[in-house]
Structure formats: C-alpha cells, structure tokens
Design a protein around this nucleic acid. Structure first.
Lengths: 258, 258
DNA sequence: CGCTCATTTGACAGAAATCAAAAGCGGTGG
DNA sequence: CCACCGCTTTTGATTTCTGTCAAATGAGCG
C-alpha cells in the first residue's frame, strides 16, 4: 500500500512518507518526535474488529497508519449510522473528553499508532506547537464536515452518491494508496459495505444498488470487482453530483482533515 | 431577550449571565478579561445583513451576543445552503485561516462582540488556558456536527424536520431566551425562512410546508404566528424524529458547541 | 392601497422506500 | 474440489413520498 517500510519504533514519524507529512506530528520537532516514539505503539486490527465503542471511556487516541476506519453512531433505535471514514494520517479518538461519542471500527485490516489519552494530553502541554496543530486541524475538519453535511442535503440520491464517490476517488486514489489502471482512470475503492454506504448517504441499499447500476450503464463507472470501480468519466461524475469540482475538492479531507 | 443590560465596555464578559458562562471566555481570568474588554467591540447588524462573505479574508472573529446568525455555503451553482445556526454565546468566524469557508448572515437583528482576528490569535498565545478552551469547544462542536449530519441522513423528510425542530426547541426555548406559555409547552421559534429551513434539511419549501401542516393537524404543533409554534406534544415530536431524546439532546449545541 | 416576495395549496409525474425473492459471495467442512 | 450455509447484494413489483409546475393566498412595506 505504501512503498515505505513501517518501523514500529518510529511510529509517529512514520518516515518521510505520506503519513508523517499529513498527521499532526508534522509540527513536531526532534525532541517531540523522540518522546512520541517512546510513548506510542502500533496495533493491528482485523477487518470488522471494534476499536473503540461509543460511550466508552476515552482511554487512547492516535493516528491511522494504514487501512480505513469507520466512525459510527449507534442510534438508540439500534441502527448503526456511518458518520465518517478515517484514512491513513487521520487522527482518531477523542482528546479532552472522558467519553467518546462514536464507535470506531476497522473497515479493512488496519494498523493504528496509539497513545494513552492522558499521556498525550500531557504531552500536548509540553509541546504547544503540536497542540496548536491539533487545533488548526480540528477547525479545518469542522469546516469539512459542515460542507459535507450541506452536500448530504442534496435532494436526489444520485447527487449524494456522486459526491460521495468523488470524495472517495480523491481519498483512495489521489493521495495515499495510488491505484491506477491508466493515468486518467483512477480506481475507486469502497472500503465499506453497501448497506453502510446507503446509510451514510441517506438512502437504502436497494436504491443505492440501482443508482450504481445506472452509473455503470451510462459509462461513468466500470466494475472491477464488488468493491472496486474504475472511474471512466470523472467529468460525468462531477456533473451528476450537481457541484463544481472545486467545491468537492474542499472536502477531500472528509473523515478527517487534509 | 435577556434581562441583562448589555454593556459595551464589558463585551466579552457580558455580565454574569448566560453568555459569559457559555462562551470561551468562561475560561478567562481577571487579566484576560480586562484585555478582552479593551480589544473587543460590539456591532449590530440588521436582519438580512451579511456579516462575512464566503471566501473573504478572515479579518475578525467573535461571539454572538444576541440574535441568530446563519451560516451558509454558496455552492458554485449559485444555490445557498444553510450549514448551521449560531446562537448567543456561540463563537463565529475562522481563526487560524486566511479565508473563511462560509458566509455569515444575520438571521434576525443581531449583536456581535467582535475582535480583530490577528489580535485574537496573539491574545490566545498569551492565554493558553483560553486557547485550550477553544480547542475543547471545537472538538465538542465537531462531534455535534457529525451527529447532525448523521441525523440528516434520515430517509424521510418528517424525521429530519422533527429532529430539526427538537433541536430548535431546546436552543430557542430551553436555554437562553426562555419563551414558554406553560411549563410543558415551549414555543419553538424559527429564526429563518421556510426556504432556508427546507434547504437545511434537504427538501423543498413545498414538502416542508406539507410536513408542518401534518404536524399541526396531528396535534404536535400549534401555530402561534408564521415563525413561532407551540410544541404541544414533545413526545410525538421525538417519536417522529425516529431517535431517542437522549440522542437528540447531545446535539443541543448544534450550530456551535454547548 | 398596491406592490413584491414568501408561503401555502393543488395536481401530477417521477423518485425512492418497502416488501419479496433471486442471485452472488465468502467461509466451513466434508 | 465441491456442497452447504449464512450473509450481502441485486432485481422486480408495488405503494408511498417527494419534487416540480402552476396558481392562490398571505405577509411585510412604502
């Protein structure tokens, strides 16, 4: 997935590669990185494993190193609602709160770089520049989530689906984890099941299925396998999203910031 | 709206009343408050006036003192989409960014307490405890917006409308600005027009109108005037929202944190 | 009062949810 | 390797809901 070799002793640094440059530790100096090395450790979760359960004590936080984590909100009625997807370099968990508001679940096999929450908070006090980075990151993400929720207020399912796919295309294909068949035809990977996607974009699995079929029939997508689609007509996708690509680009930092 | 008399020279303090206790300056000590007094000023905007335009340089930030501010996202297609509502004590504007992502517009006549953005950022460096408060506030708000966006993924318009109304009931009736006819029948005030509400909850003005009518006919709401409804059956409202009131309560800090 | 704009209402066509059933996929164990 | 099982996804038929167009009503304002 990444060319880089991951070194456990070097977790938060994660080399000069993608993750380091995008996670909050890009603001960390030598000393801070050394400290982080000592206090963090990596942990793997198999697809489907629950990492943190909604309502739990917030005991650790961290970064996604590889794979995709899904953020869910379990409504009292029992329904599980997707609230966001976390990609490599995204921060997860809840600092400065005793309780976590959402569940975190491994959407694929994932590797996380985790750190005790209280230790991390103490660490932030020692390194205000990193705390500052966390604040800026959070503000950016807030903007992104607001924009996302505006997008999800689109009237038709097709608009919402295309917005979702466009963002996925940029996250899964454009930044980390390059998967391309040809230069102009990125492959969009759907890391979660149809039912989850449907709930995420506010529809049902049936309607979602029909809309995907329409995109395939009209030549926008070509199915590779059940969870991978080649994007043949990016322009068509954007048109159907009913938004300009600039607007959609602002959202690339979907699950977590850019 | 508030019994308190607002004193310009005392803006961020805003007296011992509601606003002070809920805004980030609750973390401010004596010295910080004195400084804030000097650097802030209040400004009134008439209903409909634009406070900050999307894409503008982020030149000032502040707190809502009275009234309601609507946060909008202008899509490239020209459509204006409501992204959130800001009530008294809510922070507005964008710190640590040169550009603002959304427009801020006075939904009612409003009074704001404003401060130059760079001066405020410099101020935060001098008072880390307030910067900390801003971080915590932002994290809380992020959770709230995420939950809101999950709510907006409800399938039917009625569910989304009832969730919206429930939150409004708590914001406009429960916390500041108590308006009650009887103990159990709060009055819900709609600070924005139908068209805006419709866009906010992802439907059209026509469908919204029909859904409101249904709520009135089934005895959940009683119209007081065009923008105020008495909530006769709070339980019915929650049932129709398809969520438990606990879930909805977490969202009270809608536009901005709690 | 007459103007404009917002909101409501009605009629209708189109989109989406629902119910029911078939097909596809992934794992297990023979 | 194959058959079987449970699960997800797709498909079809039907009903309900929602968006759209058009027109009437109502509210605010000079």
């Amino acid at each position: 997935m990444h060319q880089q070799v991951f070194r456990p002793a070097d977790c938060w640094k994660c080399t000069q590669g993608d993750i380091y440059n995008r996670s909050i530790c890009r603001a960390a100096g030598e000393n801070a990185l050394r400290e982080l090395d000592r206090m963090t450790r990596t942990r793997d979760y198999a697809k489907g494993q629950v990492i943190i359960t909604e309502g739990d004590q917030s005991s650790f936080v961290g970064n996604v190193v590889s794979g995709v984590v899904k953020l869910t909100n379990t409504s009292s009625s029992g329904g599980q609602q997707i609230v966001g997807l976390l990609y490599p370099s995204d921060f997860f968990g809840r600092a400065y709160s005793d309780e976590v508001a959402f569940s975190y679940e491994a959407a694929t096999d994932v590797t996380l770089c985790i750190v005790d929450r209280h230790a991390f908070e103490a660490f932030l006090e020692r390194y205000p520049e990193i705390k500052h980075e966390l604040l800026v990151t959070t503000l950016d993400e807030l903007d992104a989530v607001r924009e996302w929720s505006a997008l999800m207020a689109s009237h038709t399912t097709m608009e919402r689906l295309c917005s979702f796919l466009y963002i996925l295309a940029r996250r899964s294909g454009g930044q980390h984890c390059l998967h391309r068949d040809t230069v102009d035809h990125p492959v969009i990977n759907l890391p979660i099941g149809r039912r989850d996607i449907a709930a995420y974009i506010g529809t049902t699995a049936e309607t979602l299925s029909r809309n995907i079929r329409n995109l395939v029939r009209s030549g926008v997508l070509r199915p590779v396998d059940n969870s991978n689609f080649e994007l043949l007509d990016g322009k068509g996708l954007v048109e159907r999203a009913g938004e300009s690509s600039e607007d959609l680009d602002e959202l690339t930092g979907l699950g977590q910031r850019d």
